[in-house]
């Protein structure tokens, strides 16, 4: 299966302006996607953004599917969906 990964805002500086297509085995989970992102991009993501040990985002950066933050790493992903990477910016 394939999912599209699209970074939002200035995170595109690290993930690219256009969506990245990621191939995953059928039935892949959020954890599988994070592992794949680590393999493909982990080395060039800044330390404050990405924890290479746990292969997770650091700070308020979230994976978003259909406008909802995905917090359960064991959740399955569906073929063809778009996963957004978004920074929670409020800062007041």
């Amino acid at each position: 299966m394939r999912v599209k990964v699209q970074a939002i805002g200035d995170l595109r500086e690290y993930f690219g302006r256009d969506p990245v297509e990621v191939a995953l085995p059928d039935g892949a989970t959020v954890r599988d996607l994070l592992d794949t992102l680590d393999m493909r991009l982990g080395a060039r993501l800044p330390g404050y953004l990405w924890d290479r040990e746990t292969r997770r985002f650091k700070g308020p950066v979230l994976l978003v599917v259909e406008k909802k933050a995905v917090q359960d790493e064991s959740a399955s992903l569906a073929d063809g969906i778009e996963v957004r990477i978004m920074r929670a910016i409020a800062g007041g």
Binding site: P46, G59, P60, V64, K68, R87, A88, A90, G91
Partner: peptide, 25 residues
């Protein structure tokens, strides 16, 4: 489950420190 809601709850406003520094803000 709104990402901003989740982010604010988990990190508070101070969670923006590193990202804003990096983003020139």
């Amino acid at each position: 489950d709104n990402p901003m809601f989740v982010g604010m709850k988990q990190y508070g406003t101070i969670g923006d420190l590193a990202g804003n520094d990096d983003g020139g803000d």
